[in-house]
Design a protein around this nucleic acid. Sequence first.
DNA 1: GGAAATTAGTTAGCATAGCTAACTATATTG
DNA 2: CAATATAGTTAGCTATGCTAACTAATTTCC
Lengths: 151, 151
Amino acid sequence: MEPEKGKDIPEADALAVADRLHSAAIHLLRRVRTRDTESGVGPAQLSALSVLVFAGPRSLGELAAAEQVRPPTMSRIVAGLMRAGLVRRQVTKEDRRRLRLEATAKGTELLWAARKRRVESLAETLRQLPAEQVEQLRQAAEMMEQLSRGE
Amino acid sequence: MEPEKGKDIPEADALAVADRLHSAAIHLLRRVRTRDTESGVGPAQLSALSVLVFAGPRSLGELAAAEQVRPPTMSRIVAGLMRAGLVRRQVTKEDRRRLRLEATAKGTELLWAARKRRVESLAETLRQLPAEQVEQLRQAAEMMEQLSRGE
DNA sequence: GGAAATTAGTTAGCATAGCTAACTATATTG
DNA sequence: CAATATAGTTAGCTATGCTAACTAATTTCC
Protein backbone atom coordinates (compact mmCIF):
# COMPACT_ATOMS: atom_id res chain seq x y z
CA MET A 1 0.00 0.00 0.00
CA GLU A 2 1.46 3.35 -1.05
CA PRO A 3 1.03 6.66 0.76
CA GLU A 4 -1.05 9.14 -1.20
CA LYS A 5 1.05 12.21 -0.64
CA GLY A 6 -0.36 15.15 1.28
CA LYS A 7 -3.53 13.26 1.96
CA ASP A 8 -3.34 10.50 4.52
CA ILE A 9 -1.06 7.79 5.74
CA PRO A 10 -1.30 4.02 5.52
CA GLU A 11 -2.39 2.32 8.71
CA ALA A 12 0.92 0.63 9.35
CA ASP A 13 2.91 3.87 9.17
CA ALA A 14 0.58 5.80 11.43
CA LEU A 15 0.71 2.98 13.98
CA ALA A 16 4.48 2.77 13.77
CA VAL A 17 4.93 6.51 14.29
CA ALA A 18 2.41 6.57 17.14
CA ASP A 19 4.32 3.71 18.69
CA ARG A 20 7.66 5.44 18.44
CA LEU A 21 6.28 8.65 19.87
CA HIS A 22 4.83 6.71 22.77
CA SER A 23 8.09 4.96 23.42
CA ALA A 24 10.09 8.17 23.10
CA ALA A 25 7.79 9.91 25.58
CA ILE A 26 8.26 7.12 28.12
CA HIS A 27 12.02 7.22 27.84
CA LEU A 28 12.25 10.98 27.93
CA LEU A 29 10.20 11.10 31.12
CA ARG A 30 12.27 8.35 32.70
CA ARG A 31 15.32 10.47 32.09
CA VAL A 32 13.96 13.58 33.76
CA ARG A 33 12.46 11.50 36.56
CA THR A 34 15.89 10.98 38.09
CA ARG A 35 15.88 14.55 39.35
CA ASP A 36 12.30 14.56 40.57
CA THR A 37 13.23 13.36 44.02
CA GLU A 38 15.41 16.39 44.69
CA SER A 39 12.38 18.55 45.31
CA GLY A 40 11.07 16.08 47.89
CA VAL A 41 7.78 16.05 46.00
CA GLY A 42 6.55 13.23 43.78
CA PRO A 43 5.80 13.67 40.07
CA ALA A 44 2.01 13.63 40.48
CA GLN A 45 2.22 16.34 43.14
CA LEU A 46 4.56 18.41 40.98
CA SER A 47 2.27 18.10 38.00
CA ALA A 48 -0.85 19.06 39.98
CA LEU A 49 1.02 21.98 41.52
CA SER A 50 1.98 23.19 38.07
CA VAL A 51 -1.68 23.38 37.09
CA LEU A 52 -2.41 25.57 40.12
CA VAL A 53 0.61 27.75 39.41
CA PHE A 54 0.08 28.20 35.68
CA ALA A 55 -3.67 27.90 35.29
CA GLY A 56 -4.68 29.45 38.62
CA PRO A 57 -6.88 28.23 41.51
CA ARG A 58 -9.10 25.21 40.90
CA SER A 59 -11.54 23.00 42.77
CA LEU A 60 -10.47 19.46 43.58
CA GLY A 61 -12.72 18.02 40.90
CA GLU A 62 -11.40 20.40 38.27
CA LEU A 63 -7.85 19.60 39.23
CA ALA A 64 -8.57 15.86 39.02
CA ALA A 65 -10.06 16.37 35.55
CA ALA A 66 -7.10 18.48 34.42
CA GLU A 67 -4.73 15.78 35.62
CA GLN A 68 -6.89 12.96 34.30
CA VAL A 69 -7.10 11.13 37.61
CA ARG A 70 -10.06 10.21 39.86
CA PRO A 71 -11.11 12.46 42.74
CA PRO A 72 -9.83 10.14 45.51
CA THR A 73 -6.41 10.11 43.87
CA MET A 74 -6.35 13.89 43.65
CA SER A 75 -7.60 14.14 47.21
CA ARG A 76 -4.49 12.34 48.40
CA ILE A 77 -2.16 14.28 46.11
CA VAL A 78 -3.56 17.54 47.47
CA ALA A 79 -3.21 16.26 51.05
CA GLY A 80 0.50 15.78 50.36
CA LEU A 81 0.85 19.25 48.89
CA MET A 82 -0.87 20.82 51.88
CA ARG A 83 1.23 18.83 54.33
CA ALA A 84 4.26 20.33 52.57
CA GLY A 85 2.79 23.83 52.72
CA LEU A 86 2.76 24.17 48.94
CA VAL A 87 -1.00 24.53 48.51
CA ARG A 88 -3.74 26.33 50.44
CA ARG A 89 -7.41 25.34 50.51
CA GLN A 90 -10.54 27.28 51.31
CA VAL A 91 -14.12 26.16 51.35
CA THR A 92 -16.06 28.31 48.90
CA LYS A 93 -18.88 30.48 50.18
CA GLU A 94 -21.35 29.83 47.38
CA ASP A 95 -21.08 26.04 47.68
CA ARG A 96 -19.65 24.74 50.92
CA ARG A 97 -18.97 21.31 49.42
CA ARG A 98 -16.40 22.74 47.04
CA LEU A 99 -12.79 23.61 47.71
CA ARG A 100 -10.74 26.41 46.24
CA LEU A 101 -7.17 25.13 45.89
CA GLU A 102 -4.37 27.61 45.36
CA ALA A 103 -0.57 27.44 45.27
CA THR A 104 1.22 29.20 48.12
CA ALA A 105 4.25 31.42 47.49
CA LYS A 106 6.40 28.53 48.68
CA GLY A 107 4.61 26.23 46.23
CA THR A 108 5.17 28.59 43.34
CA GLU A 109 8.87 28.94 44.13
CA LEU A 110 9.35 25.22 44.54
CA LEU A 111 7.63 24.54 41.26
CA TRP A 112 9.87 26.87 39.33
CA ALA A 113 12.99 25.40 40.86
CA ALA A 114 11.83 21.81 40.29
CA ARG A 115 10.73 22.54 36.75
CA LYS A 116 14.09 24.00 35.92
CA ARG A 117 15.96 21.09 37.49
CA ARG A 118 13.79 18.60 35.66
CA VAL A 119 14.56 20.01 32.24
CA GLU A 120 18.04 21.39 32.70
CA SER A 121 19.94 18.25 31.77
CA LEU A 122 17.77 17.87 28.68
CA ALA A 123 18.56 21.48 27.85
CA GLU A 124 22.26 20.72 28.32
CA THR A 125 22.03 18.00 25.70
CA LEU A 126 19.96 20.20 23.40
CA ARG A 127 22.66 22.85 23.48
CA GLN A 128 24.99 20.38 21.79
CA LEU A 129 22.67 19.87 18.84
CA PRO A 130 22.59 22.03 15.71
CA ALA A 131 19.98 24.79 15.75
CA GLU A 132 17.98 23.07 13.00
CA GLN A 133 17.38 19.97 15.08
CA VAL A 134 16.39 22.00 18.11
CA GLU A 135 13.89 23.89 16.00
CA GLN A 136 12.55 20.59 14.67
CA LEU A 137 12.11 19.33 18.22
CA ARG A 138 10.35 22.52 19.22
CA GLN A 139 7.86 22.07 16.40
CA ALA A 140 7.46 18.41 17.27
CA ALA A 141 6.59 19.33 20.86
CA GLU A 142 3.81 21.56 19.57
CA MET A 143 2.47 18.84 17.34
CA MET A 144 2.55 16.37 20.22
CA GLU A 145 0.49 18.73 22.36
CA GLN A 146 -2.07 18.86 19.59
CA LEU A 147 -2.06 15.08 19.36
CA SER A 148 -2.60 14.86 23.12
CA ARG A 149 -5.68 17.03 22.78
CA GLY A 150 -6.87 14.74 19.98
CA GLU A 151 -6.60 17.46 17.33
CA MET B 1 19.76 37.33 21.22
CA GLU B 2 19.95 35.46 17.95
CA PRO B 3 20.90 31.83 17.45
CA GLU B 4 24.10 31.35 15.48
CA LYS B 5 22.89 28.86 12.98
CA GLY B 6 24.41 25.41 12.88
CA LYS B 7 26.50 26.11 15.93
CA ASP B 8 24.74 26.17 19.24
CA ILE B 9 21.67 27.53 20.93
CA PRO B 10 21.23 30.23 23.54
CA GLU B 11 20.52 28.91 27.02
CA ALA B 12 16.99 30.30 27.21
CA ASP B 13 15.89 28.57 24.00
CA ALA B 14 17.30 25.23 24.99
CA LEU B 15 15.50 25.39 28.33
CA ALA B 16 12.25 26.43 26.70
CA VAL B 17 12.39 23.60 24.17
CA ALA B 18 13.32 21.07 26.87
CA ASP B 19 10.38 22.30 28.91
CA ARG B 20 7.95 21.95 26.02
CA LEU B 21 9.20 18.47 25.21
CA HIS B 22 8.80 17.44 28.83
CA SER B 23 5.30 18.81 28.97
CA ALA B 24 4.34 17.26 25.64
CA ALA B 25 5.63 13.87 26.78
CA ILE B 26 3.53 14.04 29.97
CA HIS B 27 0.38 14.92 28.10
CA LEU B 28 0.88 12.35 25.40
CA LEU B 29 1.33 9.59 27.97
CA ARG B 30 -1.72 10.69 29.93
CA ARG B 31 -3.72 10.30 26.78
CA VAL B 32 -2.62 6.74 26.12
CA ARG B 33 -2.71 5.76 29.80
CA THR B 34 -6.48 5.44 29.79
CA ARG B 35 -6.28 2.18 27.88
CA ASP B 36 -3.41 0.64 29.81
CA THR B 37 -5.63 -1.23 32.20
CA GLU B 38 -7.42 -3.19 29.49
CA SER B 39 -4.57 -5.63 29.15
CA GLY B 40 -4.60 -6.40 32.87
CA VAL B 41 -0.90 -5.60 32.95
CA GLY B 42 0.58 -2.41 34.37
CA PRO B 43 2.53 0.10 32.28
CA ALA B 44 5.93 -0.85 33.70
CA GLN B 45 5.27 -4.52 32.93
CA LEU B 46 4.13 -3.69 29.43
CA SER B 47 7.18 -1.56 28.79
CA ALA B 48 9.58 -4.21 30.08
CA LEU B 49 7.80 -6.86 28.03
CA SER B 50 8.19 -4.74 24.92
CA VAL B 51 11.95 -4.72 25.39
CA LEU B 52 11.99 -8.51 25.53
CA VAL B 53 9.74 -8.78 22.50
CA PHE B 54 11.49 -6.24 20.30
CA ALA B 55 15.07 -6.36 21.51
CA GLY B 56 15.16 -10.06 22.36
CA PRO B 57 16.10 -11.96 25.56
CA ARG B 58 17.92 -10.04 28.25
CA SER B 59 19.28 -10.55 31.73
CA LEU B 60 17.47 -8.89 34.60
CA GLY B 61 20.21 -6.29 35.00
CA GLU B 62 20.17 -5.45 31.31
CA LEU B 63 16.43 -5.11 31.37
CA ALA B 64 16.61 -2.83 34.42
CA ALA B 65 19.18 -0.67 32.62
CA ALA B 66 17.09 -0.54 29.46
CA GLU B 67 14.07 0.52 31.49
CA GLN B 68 16.08 2.89 33.66
CA VAL B 69 14.94 1.35 36.92
CA ARG B 70 16.86 -0.35 39.76
CA PRO B 71 17.29 -4.12 39.84
CA PRO B 72 14.89 -4.71 42.76
CA THR B 73 12.19 -2.83 40.87
CA MET B 74 12.77 -4.91 37.76
CA SER B 75 12.87 -8.07 39.85
CA ARG B 76 9.31 -7.41 40.95
CA ILE B 77 8.13 -6.36 37.50
CA VAL B 78 9.49 -9.61 36.08
CA ALA B 79 7.84 -11.59 38.90
CA GLY B 80 4.51 -10.13 37.79
CA LEU B 81 5.18 -10.99 34.16
CA MET B 82 6.07 -14.57 35.07
CA ARG B 83 3.02 -14.93 37.29
CA ALA B 84 0.96 -13.93 34.27
CA GLY B 85 2.82 -16.42 32.04
CA LEU B 86 4.12 -13.68 29.76
CA VAL B 87 7.81 -14.20 30.40
CA ARG B 88 10.01 -17.25 30.87
CA ARG B 89 13.29 -17.32 32.79
CA GLN B 90 16.25 -19.64 32.61
CA VAL B 91 19.46 -19.61 34.59
CA THR B 92 22.33 -19.27 32.14
CA LYS B 93 24.91 -22.03 31.94
CA GLU B 94 28.01 -19.85 31.68
CA ASP B 95 27.13 -17.76 34.72
CA ARG B 96 24.61 -19.30 37.09
CA ARG B 97 23.93 -15.96 38.79
CA ARG B 98 22.43 -14.53 35.65
CA LEU B 99 18.96 -15.00 34.24
CA ARG B 100 17.91 -15.20 30.66
CA LEU B 101 14.50 -13.56 30.40
CA GLU B 102 12.44 -14.19 27.33
CA ALA B 103 8.89 -13.35 26.25
CA THR B 104 6.58 -16.34 25.86
CA ALA B 105 4.26 -16.66 22.85
CA LYS B 106 1.43 -15.47 25.09
CA GLY B 107 3.54 -12.49 26.13
CA THR B 108 4.33 -11.58 22.56
CA GLU B 109 0.70 -11.77 21.55
CA LEU B 110 -0.47 -9.75 24.52
CA LEU B 111 2.14 -7.11 23.84
CA TRP B 112 1.06 -6.63 20.27
CA ALA B 113 -2.57 -6.32 21.25
CA ALA B 114 -1.86 -3.94 24.13
CA ARG B 115 0.57 -1.91 22.11
CA LYS B 116 -1.93 -1.49 19.35
CA ARG B 117 -4.67 -0.47 21.76
CA ARG B 118 -2.38 1.97 23.49
CA VAL B 119 -1.40 3.79 20.34
CA GLU B 120 -4.39 3.29 18.11
CA SER B 121 -6.19 6.49 19.01
CA LEU B 122 -2.95 8.39 18.49
CA ALA B 123 -2.58 6.68 15.15
CA GLU B 124 -6.15 7.64 14.30
CA THR B 125 -5.29 11.27 14.85
CA LEU B 126 -2.03 10.93 12.93
CA ARG B 127 -3.91 9.62 9.94
CA GLN B 128 -5.63 12.95 9.65
CA LEU B 129 -2.35 14.84 9.37
CA PRO B 130 -0.46 15.49 6.14
CA ALA B 131 2.33 13.03 5.40
CA GLU B 132 4.96 15.71 5.94
CA GLN B 133 3.95 16.29 9.54
CA VAL B 134 3.85 12.59 10.28
CA GLU B 135 7.36 12.27 8.90
CA GLN B 136 8.47 15.20 11.05
CA LEU B 137 7.02 13.51 14.11
CA ARG B 138 8.73 10.26 13.22
CA GLN B 139 12.08 12.03 13.06
CA ALA B 140 11.32 13.87 16.28
CA ALA B 141 10.66 10.57 18.05
CA GLU B 142 14.10 9.37 17.01
CA MET B 143 15.73 12.55 18.26
CA MET B 144 13.88 12.23 21.55
CA GLU B 145 15.21 8.70 21.99
CA GLN B 146 18.71 10.05 21.49
CA LEU B 147 18.03 12.79 24.02
CA SER B 148 16.82 10.18 26.48
CA ARG B 149 20.07 8.35 26.13
CA GLY B 150 21.89 11.64 26.71
CA GLU B 151 23.39 11.73 23.22
C1' DG C 1 44.02 -23.45 46.53
C1' DG C 2 41.43 -20.64 49.26
C1' DA C 3 40.09 -16.11 51.38
C1' DA C 4 38.39 -11.73 49.94
C1' DA C 5 36.10 -8.90 46.86
C1' DT C 6 32.82 -8.32 43.23
C1' DT C 7 28.63 -9.22 40.74
C1' DA C 8 23.63 -10.88 39.92
C1' DG C 9 19.55 -11.17 41.74
C1' DT C 10 16.13 -11.32 45.76
C1' DT C 11 13.75 -9.96 49.97
C1' DA C 12 12.03 -6.63 53.24
C1' DG C 13 10.25 -2.45 54.13
C1' DC C 14 8.98 2.31 52.97
C1' DA C 15 6.55 6.00 50.00
C1' DT C 16 3.83 7.59 46.09
C1' DA C 17 0.06 6.94 43.03
C1' DG C 18 -3.54 4.70 40.56
C1' DC C 19 -8.25 2.49 41.23
C1' DT C 20 -13.26 1.22 43.23
C1' DA C 21 -16.58 1.09 46.96
C1' DA C 22 -18.61 3.17 50.55
C1' DC C 23 -19.08 7.07 53.40
C1' DT C 24 -20.29 12.33 55.00
C1' DA C 25 -21.95 16.72 54.07
C1' DT C 26 -24.12 19.99 51.26
C1' DA C 27 -27.28 21.43 47.44
C1' DT C 28 -30.92 20.73 44.37
C1' DT C 29 -35.31 18.85 42.83
C1' DG C 30 -39.88 17.24 42.88
C1' DC D 1 -39.70 18.19 53.21
C1' DA D 2 -38.15 13.89 51.29
C1' DA D 3 -35.49 12.06 47.61
C1' DT D 4 -31.76 12.65 44.66
C1' DA D 5 -27.50 14.46 43.02
C1' DT D 6 -22.92 16.41 43.73
C1' DA D 7 -18.19 17.37 46.09
C1' DG D 8 -14.90 15.45 48.59
C1' DT D 9 -12.94 11.93 51.98
C1' DT D 10 -11.74 7.44 53.87
C1' DA D 11 -10.53 2.60 53.52
C1' DG D 12 -8.38 -0.80 51.25
C1' DC D 13 -6.44 -3.00 47.13
C1' DT D 14 -2.55 -3.14 43.44
C1' DA D 15 1.48 -1.48 41.00
C1' DT D 16 5.90 0.91 40.96
C1' DG D 17 9.63 3.49 42.52
C1' DC D 18 13.52 3.48 46.08
C1' DT D 19 17.44 1.85 49.61
C1' DA D 20 19.42 -1.53 52.71
C1' DA D 21 20.57 -5.89 53.60
C1' DC D 22 20.71 -10.49 52.20
C1' DT D 23 22.15 -15.09 49.29
C1' DA D 24 24.65 -17.29 45.82
C1' DA D 25 28.03 -17.48 42.27
C1' DT D 26 32.19 -15.79 40.17
C1' DT D 27 36.50 -13.51 39.93
C1' DT D 28 40.74 -11.70 42.01
C1' DC D 29 44.72 -12.09 44.23
C1' DC D 30 47.96 -13.66 47.74
